[in-house]
Design a protein around this nucleic acid. Sequence first.
RNA 1: GCGCGGUUAGCUCAGUUGGAUAGAGCGCUGGCCUCCGGAGCCAGAGGCCGCAGGUUCGACUCCUGCACCGCGCACCA
Length: 593
Amino acid sequence: MWTVPRWVSSRSTFEESPVSLVTIPEMLHQMVANAAASVGCDNSLVEGEQAQPTQNPKFGDYQSNHAFRLARAMGENPRALAEKIVSALVAHPAVVSTSVAGPGFINFSLSDSFLSAHLQDQLCSEGGGIPQGGAGRTVVIDYSSPNVAKRMHVGHMRSTIIGNTLDRMHRAQGWTVIADNHIGDWGTQFGKLIVAWNRWLDADAFAADPICELERLYVKFGNDADEAAHDLARAETAKLQAGDAVNNALWSRFISVSMVEFDRVYGRLGVAFDEVLGESFYNPVLPGVVAALKAEGIAEESEGAVIIRWPEDGPKGLADTVLVIQKQDGAFLYGTTDLATLAHRKKTWSPERVVYVTDTRQQLHFRQVFDAWGAWQPDHGMDLVHTWFGMLVLPEGAMSTRKGNVIRLMDLVDEAVSRARAVADEKSPDLSEDHRAAVAEAVGTAAIRYADLSQNPQSNVTFTWDKMLSLEGNTAPYLMYSYARCRSIQRKGEVTPTTAALGIVGPFERALVMHLIRFGSAVASATAVYRPNLLCDYLYETANIFNRFYREEKVLSAATEADKERRLALVEATASVMRRGFAMLGIEPLDRM
RNA sequence: GCGCGGUUAGCUCAGUUGGAUAGAGCGCUGGCCUCCGGAGCCAGAGGCCGCAGGUUCGACUCCUGCACCGCGCACCA
């Protein structure tokens, strides 16, 4: 069996590298800025700029737009300034040529040997070219958060998949990640469930499929409960909260059967948490939170409830809004829990950042919570991020248990795997039964993840089976197929690729190398804006460019041994980037499919 | 009413600090050699980037106004 080769740098020390730790866009910008300074420009007029890859190879490899920005700030003609800057550029071994184009673009062409050396360094570096900007830093990521006693449906999918991918992306960049599943395991629904359990439980049904029976009971309560049942439910909730032994035993049973069900889905989708601290975990400290907020003058009593109120001239978006942290009847709300959760996270992990992954409807809520927390703990020092995503709706409108149009996450996974199985049976009859089953599982679950991840998270999603489960075009199977092609070539190549063999001959090899060296910055920028779709785009392009290379250049039957070894090295470079990308997206790399 | 999003090809959607000729998938049309995997590749048709102004060397991108759609705004999460 082919194994993943270990890359060995052909250079003796990292210091000899012409690339250093600076990225190419940074390096080129620095050259331009130095030249600009030498002709009397003040670079501080424009901050935070970088060079960028060109759209079209005819403009060279990278372009700088620095002259435009300087020219604006200085009131000069951009084209003339660009020419002045270019004439002052200091020669650099990596740069083959520079030119001024159009109204003032400064274009660079880089040498092939520099580009392949850069790729070598990337492949030999610890993160495979992914900047380790998270080393020594801790982030808590809060995602998925389903409610106990109900099966997960496709409405839970986005938080789970996007959150898990952000989790993986952060880990790949060296962050210490605490993935926390803040499950909904507390509240008045348990009183109802206990009443329904006592009245209508079908023990056999519970034994066969516990969470299905719990759902039935909950729905039945909603449909059939009379006034007396509702009164009783309130009493049972009160008993539970007072620590009644029987109710507590039932409650923990509801939670444990729910967790078993959740874990089944998580396992198939490649999702795992470090902590599962639900709402109930914080329940004991909530009275203290409210008392503290009142004592600080942050919260006040109003109409019998305890609220936090923002004035008319309050922060943007919060003006004239209210957050209720304790109801008239004394019960606490999720805002209260969220504040207690922040306190716990600060005390336990002291993270640099806390990231919440929820849908758009909770934007106001988290602004309120973050602002209230800042007022309560002004020196907390945590960066609080709510990265929201758009609504998932069905073509016929909202999904609701009442309408009976919920699509369960497990059913979606089953359907995806079964469709993938049909394709595997058709396309790869030579693989064994077990092998095809494993391929179908990997392809089906990856297709679901990718279908969600490849969209801009903030767009709304209209759910359709065919879109969700497509196996052609810009989908996970396409990426996986391209990877399997790499592996197939390697299996048959019987030559261990080495970084020393890396090089560039011709436009297709060059395009591939140019793209592969952008991997790190693609990961970094996707993470910076919490948008996995940018990473999907990058990997889709990787597959595209590789497939073009594959079509145009023979690897195993290359004209010379040098061509073959060089191209085999490029194949492994591509596979290596894809493996790392797949790991972040939660896609299993398959050698055959 | 206030706030947050959205409006890009027939459909579903990308479009990173404002950059050179606005991209992809699906669908449609036409191709792919006895050679590394056809879940693939190549080519073509298809656009008033919601409308109207503004900012500037340059606007799908920034600003203002308008239209339509979605969501949120005190005791659910």
